[in-house]
Amino acid sequence: MTAPHPDLIMLLAGLAAILVVASVAGFLLQRRLSPDGSSAVIENLNDRIKAWWVMIVLMGIALLFGRIGVVLLFGFASFAALREFVTLTDTRRGDHWAVAAAFFVVLPYQYYLIFIDWYGMYSIFIPVYAFLLLPIVAALRGDTDRFLVRVAEVQWALMICVFCVSHVPALLTLQIPGFEGRNLLLIAFLVVVVQSSDVLQYVWGKLLGRTKIAPHLSPSKTVEGFIGGAASATLLGAALSWMTPFTPIQAGALSLVIVLMGFFGGLVMSAIKRDRGVKDWGHLIAGHGGFIDRLDSVIFSAPIFFHLVRYWWSAT
């Protein structure tokens, strides 16, 4: 356990301060407008604030323990996400061994590869090895009914819940000249930009939202909310350049990419939910639905952010 970087402590303290303000505001709103818990919007808001507290405390603890803490935290997040995803698929008895292997072999091994920093393996392990081996396991069971659909569902579950999510802790393995020992701040930057983009889109949408962007997929998303949220999250990202190896313009551009990927990733995940006929992925976190409901924007932005930074800034 090494002492965390002062920038990180400042950032966590700043987030905690914002959450204290949000909690007080949520408490006052509830006392004035919904003393008996009758306003769904305010109850939902307060549930969300509580869940953010849990998230920031978990992130803080993991960050204090350095790489092992972050790898374990996201490993468990992957596990919970995969559990939600597979619950909604059509997998059946013939897939039992393939699914069990996904949970108990592929997932732990992927995070182990991240931990030992074997880039050449963790970047292809799931897209190549798991991609080819799991259908073999399923085929050996001999059940050919809807085979392609079932195999594809397991592949997608692994790519989304394990491969993509694991690119968050993978940010720790990048070697950026002049930024040694501070890689945790890249994770903090990614998570803060993604989460604040979600919040700001929600706020802008509530304030000005008129035109629905995808009425069939996500009735709560509006053009006004999207533009306002994306623009303000990009500005916020640029303002956070002091904790990154980027200039303010670069930080803003990367934030815009993160925000766009997060937004469209959210649409894709909504499409999957619609297809499966559910509103939320699960019920693990009060007010937030399931784990994937919270992770969906990070899922799509993490690998792209990782590779952009690796290509342009990393020494290896």
């Binding site: 995969l82 559990r83 997998t91 039992h96 949970f103």
Partner: peptide, 18 residues
């Protein structure tokens, strides 16, 4: 609900499902 998918008859490794 769903426990029959967690551990179908004849299997001995449970698969995590909600």
């Amino acid at each position: 609900d769903n426990l029959n998918r967690v551990m179908p008859k004849g299997e001995f490794v449970p698969v995590p499902l909600i």
